[in-house]
Design a protein around this nucleic acid. Structure first.
Lengths: 216, 216
DNA sequence: TAGATTGTTAATCGATTAACAATC
DNA sequence: TAGATTGTTAATCGATTAACAATC
C-alpha cells in the first residue's frame, strides 16, 4: 500500500473498472486478469495493474484478481462503502433524468434532496423526493449531511447555486451547466457539459462531405 | 498553418474557448489576450496560445486575439460552420432533457430526429420532433444526412443501438449509457456517463467524516 | 515443474509550462 | 520608443507502455 499523489486519470478509471467487475460478479465469474480487463475496457493491461497497485497488492501472481475482493477494495477507495448523500439543484428535465438514476446508483450514493428556485416547481414530487425551495437548501444540506451537489440549472444561475452549495458545506460538485465555476480549491468540481462533448465530436467528422442530404 | 496530429486534449478545449469567446462577443468585447482567457478558463496562457497556433496564426503580437475572427476560426476548425444533423436514440427523461438544448446548440448542430424502441413512445412529440420507431432509423439517417448519434437508451440496448447507427452510416457517437461500446476505428465515441463522473467525485471527499448526519 | 500473471522498474511517449525573440 | 503579447523552441513534468523478476 503506497501513497504518492494519485492522478486524476487513475481516479477516473476506477469507476470504469468497478462497473465491469460488478458485471463479472453478476455473471459469477470470480477471477479476472489485467489482460481480460484491458481487452474489455480498451485499456493497456500494464496500466490497469499499475492503477490498482497504487492502492495495494490486490492481485495474485499467476492467478489474477479475485473479483469480489477487488470490488470491495475499489468501493472502499472511492468511498462508495459509506453512505454519501447528494443534493440535486434544478428540477428541470435534466434534473428529472438524473434522479431516475437513483436506483441505478444503488451503491450508497444517493440523491436525497431536490431544490428549485421556480415557485411552481416547489412541492412537486420526483419519485420519492419533494422539490424544495432554495431557501431550505442550507438547512437540508446540513441536517442530511449532504456532501455532493449536482447543478442542473440554467447557466446564468449556476455560479450562484455553486456559491450557495459551498456555503452550506458541500465538498464536491457535478456541474451540468456550460460555465466554468469559480470555487475554492477544497471543493472538487467535475464538468459534465454535453455541449462541449458534442462540439468536440464534430471535429472528428470526415471532411469534404459538404452537404448532400437529399431531402427525400 | 501547421498540421501535426492534434491531441484530443486540445480538441476538447476548443469548445470551451469558443463558449467564452461567444460570451465576450455578446458583451461587445472585441479583443482578448491569452492571459485573460487563461484567467477566466483556469488554463495556462502558454497552453492557449499553443493550442490556437496549431491551427494558424490567429493572434497579433502586442495586441491579442480579435474575438469575432477567432470565433469564426474555431467554428471552422470544429466544423460548426456547416449544418450537422444529429439523431437522438432513446426518448426517455434524458433524451427529453437533451432535445431541450436544441435551441441552445444554435450553431448549426441540431437534433433532427428522435427514435425509441418502445411502442407507446412512438408518435409522441418532443418539441417540434416526432418520436420515430427504430425501424425508420436507417432510412431517416440517410435521407437527413445525419452524422452524429446520441445514445440515451438503457445499458443493455446501447451496443445494439450503436451497431444500428453505425450501419446507417453515422460517423460519431455521444454515449450516455454506462457501457464501453465496441465500434470500428472510424467511428468516434465520446462517453458521457455521469455515474462515472459522480463516483470519481466521491474519491475526493474528505476522509474521516464517518457519518454524523443528525436526522434532525 | 511449467505456465500464467502480478507488481514494479525502466523506457517511451506526450502534454504542459517557461522563456524569449519577433513584432504590433 | 516603450509596453504588450504573440508564436515557438526548449525544459519540465507526468502519464503510458514495455519488460521482466517474483511467485502463484
Amino acid at each position: 500500500m503506497k501513497s504518492d499523489k494519485i492522478s486524476e486519470a487513475v481516479v477516473r478509471r476506477l469507476p470504469v473498472y468497478l462497473r465491469f467487475l460488478n458485471d463479472l460478479n453478476k455473471r459469477e465469474i470470480s477471477t479476472v486478469s489485467s489482460q481480460e480487463l484491458g481487452q474489455k475496457l480498451d485499456l493497456n493491461p500494464a496500466q490497469i495493474r499499475k492503477d490498482l497497485a497504487y492502492f495495494g497488492d490486490f492481485g495474485r501472481k499467476g492467478i489474477g484478481y479475485d473479483v469480489p475482493y477487488l470490488i470491495e477494495k475499489i468501493r472502499h477507495i472511492l468511498k462508495l462503502d459509506q453512505p454519501i448523500n447528494v443534493a440535486l439543484v434544478g428540477a428541470g428535465n435534466l434534473g428529472h433524468a438524473l434522479s431516475n438514476y437513483n436506483a441505478y446508483l444503488k451503491d450508497t450514493m444517493k440523491i436525497t434532496a431536490v431544490f428549485d428556485a421556480y415557485e411552481p416547481k416547489v412541492g412537486q414530487k420526483i419519485h420519492s423526493l419533494t422539490v424544495q425551495p432554495m431557501s431550505e437548501l442550507q438547512e437540508t444540506v446540513r441536517s442530511q449531511g449532504i456532501r455532493i451537489g449536482i447543478i442542473t440549472v440554467p447557466d446564468q444561475e449556476a455560479q450562484n447555486v455553486a456559491d450557495l452549495l459551498i456555503e452550506a458545506g458541500i465538498e464536491a460538485i457535478l456541474n451540468f451547466a456550460p460555465v466554468i465555476l469559480k470555487t475554492p480549491p477544497y471543493v472538487r468540481v467535475h464538468a459534465a457539459d454535453f455541449t462541449t462533448d458534442l462540439q468536440s465530436l464534430a471535429y472528428y467528422l470526415q471532411d469534404g462531405k459538404e452537404e448532400e442530404p437529399n431531402e427525400q
